[in-house]
């Protein structure tokens, strides 16, 4: 049952991704509306999949970091559905849905790390995971908006205004949504890092950081700096968008380090 829900959600995300690409290539506006509707339908099936995975007997072993990837992809989709509700940012789905698909397939097929041992679970771990999930979801949307910004800015600079130019939102709108999402992500990831450190200390790991945790802290600091520069240093436009993209690459590095580490603990 869970497998069927997973396949349906993945197929719907793939379909919406294809529809968004067709729309960017010049298909009529109705295509983007349908693409967003398909994302909505996929999200409903995705929620059903999450419920099944966490409640179905025998599937509980999936509660590890890999399943967290699926939950993260759902959080990304919900964040996207929230920002696109007025229509202007609908096409950002063209950049969000491929990431969602990668995360979803990562949840399903990458099987290198294990789950968190029962004895070290607790409320702190819950806060750590939730804050990181929501922070990463906000970062993903910021990243998608930053990519759209860079494409749009490039079209305006090169004066090639055909194709996706007319389909993508205005620069100012993309910049605003990217800044807002980074503004949400930084404190959440800060909470995630803090609770992670506290949890590690309580678990007897002390203050010794793993490679992934170091990258995580560096990414968080980098995003904090990007946010600070945006808010008070007058960093805007292309530089801010590039900062967001680089920061997101760091966040992905953290995620990969979680996936490939031998113990599978956070």
């Amino acid at each position: 049952m869970a497998a069927a829900a997973f396949s349906t959600a993945a197929a719907l995300y793939a379909a919406s991704s294809a529809l968004f690409l067709v729309y960017l290539a010049g298909a009529p506006p109705a295509t983007a509306r349908w693409a967003a509707r398909v994302v909505g339908a996929a999200a409903v099936v995705h929620v059903a999949y999450e419920v099944l995975v966490y409640t179905e007997p025998g599937v509980a072993s999936a509660h590890g970091i890999h399943q967290t990837l699926s939950t993260l992809s759902l959080a990304v989709v919900v964040s996207y559905l929230w920002i696109q509700r007025r229509g202007t940012l609908r096409v950002v789905g063209a950049f969000v849905t491929p990431i969602v698909l990668v995360l979803l397939f990562g949840a399903r097929f990458v099987r290198t790390g294990g789950g968190v041992p029962e004895q070290v679970r607790g409320a702190l771990l819950g806060v750590h995971i939730t804050a990181n999930l929501l922070g990463d979801a906000a970062l993903t949307v910021a990243f998608a908006a930053a990519i759209a910004y860079l494409l749009q800015e490039r079209s305006l600079k090169t004066k090639r205004l055909a194709g996706s130019f007319r389909r993508l939102p205005p620069l100012d709108v993309l910049e605003a949504v990217s800044t807002r999402c980074v503004g949400i992500a930084v404190p959440l990831l800060g909470i995630g890092a803090l609770t992670g450190a506290m949890w590690a200390m309580r678990g007897g790991h002390g203050w010794q950081l793993t490679g992934g945790q170091v990258v995580g802290v560096v990414t968080w600091v980098l995003f904090g700096v990007v946010l600070l520069l945006r808010l008070v240093g007058g960093w805007r436009g292309r530089r801010a968008a590039l900062g967001t993209v680089i920061g997101y690459a760091g966040a992905l590095a953290v995620l990969v380090s979680y996936l490939v580490r031998p113990g599978g603990e956070g």
């Binding site: 202007t88 749009q152 305006l156 205005p170 620069l171 100012d172 709108v173």
Partner: peptide, 8 residues
């Protein structure tokens, strides 16, 4: 059109 693509 261009102004609206920059500033919304």
């Amino acid at each position: 059109d261009l102004a609206e693509k920059i500033f919304g």
